[in-house]
Design a protein around this nucleic acid. Structure first.
Length: 426
RNA sequence: GGAGAGAUGGCAGAGUUGGUUUAAUGCACCUGAUUCGAAAUCAGACGUACUGUCAAAGGUACCGGGGGUUCGAAUCCCUCUCUCUCCGCCA
């Protein structure tokens, strides 16, 4: 969530930013409501603090009087405290409800887009930041989509997943399973080479963690929930890895914090049905290598560019045609201040598949996480966080299979040979 | 799963017959003095959040989380979570 202080001090910028997200005048009213409620909260806080302070003073006096054996005088003061207590209890309740209201409103406000984010309402308004599709792969007319290729070469089996679990849980097998593992290994190695610390986190997290990265309270339906133990299956490694930093106060020398993790990701999302979600395009469980960074506010956008270059280098090494989109205000995620999406061209399906999303959250996420650092003057300040997929496996597999199919089998890009232990799937 | 013990500041560790505790003390860290420089020594500063202010002073809350008793709770009661020890089970 946005910081109250920022909303108060930079209201103009925030309002302009929300307009870029196509917020209407009616929606923007919440900003003034927030500020009003906060004024109210501060006044109430002052009053409450004064009442409590007075109570503390009287309690001390009573203690002193009791010590001296002046019981009657103490009794008089006790009566005073009693009325004070009623007052402070009342104020406490007011404070409680004001805070709830304030939080509710704050949770409803998305992050303010960075000034470089273009205006726009739909994905069509996204700006192509880079196009790496030439030469476009030329496939024969009878080229197969990846779900057909999977059948032909026995790489993964969706029907079998239905038997074991349900729709959207692919079973990889043979060279398909091996390719999956090869890609994970390759992505992790590249991330470690780029300076990220490898993390192997838990795949279930508690409520505090789900709240920390903003899955709760709003996106509860996205996650699988083990109700008996009140734990959530992670929808992305971002959740456990970013929460490593929850409630931490970093020192300047701790920057930059760079972590990477491979995890399966579990998503309940209902989604639509039909050809565009066939095969591995959208599944409930998929593998992903995530990269996460925490940065000094002055460095976060430089870090974002660094992450973009990293993901770009992965796709080049995989020899996949891709483009990078700078998302417009209307298409950006709730918490993001600036997002680049990576899309790979799936030659057989003749459509773009999103394989990575790299975002800078500025202090939006760390505000909820309470991720701070101590600056040169010893003051605490919120750090900036960033994350991105590097990369999401299922769709990369789909694109690799489709784009590299030949009459003699599916040829793997050279970089994967040593990881997979084979060059061709046939 | 059973039994017992415990949770205090960056760390260690007092305080648990409720009342100068504004949480002792030590270590670490920071600043200054001393020194050519360092070690040692001495002096000082040293939690987080909210509030307040030009800035400060000051105020309030926080001793695992939540609730309760009381004029007053780190201290007493209830509850939850977690940790440790022993036993059982187990990849």
């Amino acid at each position: 969530m946005l910081q109250l202080k920022v909303i108060r001090e930079e209201k103009k910028r925030i309002v302009a930013g929300l307009r870029k997200r196509n917020w209407t005048a009616a929606q923007l009213k919440v900003i003034d409501q927030i500020l009003n409620t906060d004024d109210n909260r501060r006044a109430t806080q002052k009053e409450l603090d004064d009442a409590l302070g007075e109570g503390n003073r009287l309690a001390k006096q009573i203690g002193a009087l009791m010590g001296q054996g002046k019981k009657e005088e103490a009794e008089v003061l006790k009566i005073q405290v009693a009325t004070l207590k009623i007052k402070s209890k009342d104020l406490e309740e007011q404070m409680g409800s004001l805070k709830v209201q304030l939080d509710e409103m704050l949770y409803s406000v998305p992050n303010c887009p960075h000034k470089s984010v273009p205006k726009g309402k739909t994905p069509e308004d996204n700006k192509v930041a880079k196009d790496w599709t030439k030469p476009f792969p030329a496939l024969p007319e009878d080229a197969l989509p990846h779900w057909e290729l999977a059948k032909k070469y026995n790489l993964f089996d969706l029907e079998l997943g239905v038997k074991l679990t349900g729709a959207g849980f692919p079973v990889y097998r043979g060279k398909g399973a091996r390719l999956e593992r090869a890609l994970i290994q390759f992505f992790l190695d590249e991330a470690v080479k780029a300076g990220y610390e490898e993390i192997a986190p838990p795949l279930l997290v508690n409520e505090d963690s789900a709240r920390g990265t903003g899955q709760l309270p709003d996106k509860e339906a996205q996650m699988y929930h083990c109700t008996i133990d009140n734990l959530y299956l992670i929808p992305t490694a971002e959740v456990p890895v970013t929460n490593i930093l929850r409630d931490e106060i970093l020192a300047m020398k701790d920057f930059p914090v760079r972590m990477t993790a491979y995890t399966p990701c579990f998503r309940r999302e209902a989604g639509s049905y039909g050809a565009h979600v066939r095969g591995l395009n959208r599944v409930h469980q998929f593998d992903k290598v995530e990269i996460v960074r925490a940065e000094h506010p002055d460095e976060s956008y430089k870090a974002l560019q660094g992450m973009v270059r990293h993901v770009e280098s992965l796709l080049r090494k995989l020899e996949l045609p891709f483009r990078i989109l700078l998302l417009c205000g209307g298409d950006m995620g709730f918490a993001s201040a600036k997002t680049y999406d990576f899309e790979v061209w799936s030659a057989a399906q003749k459509r773009w598949l999103e394989v990575s999303s790299v975002s800078c959250f500025e202090a939006f996420q760390s505000n909820r996480l309470k991720l701070r650092f101590r600056d040169e003057n010893g003051k605490t300040e919120l750090a900036h966080t960033l994350n991105g997929s590097a990369l999401a496996l299922a769709r990369i597999v789909a694109a690799l299979l489709e784009n590299n199919q030949t009459a003699d089998g599916i040829r793997l890009p050279k970089v994967l040979w040593k990881y997979a232990g084979f060059k061709v799937i046939d």
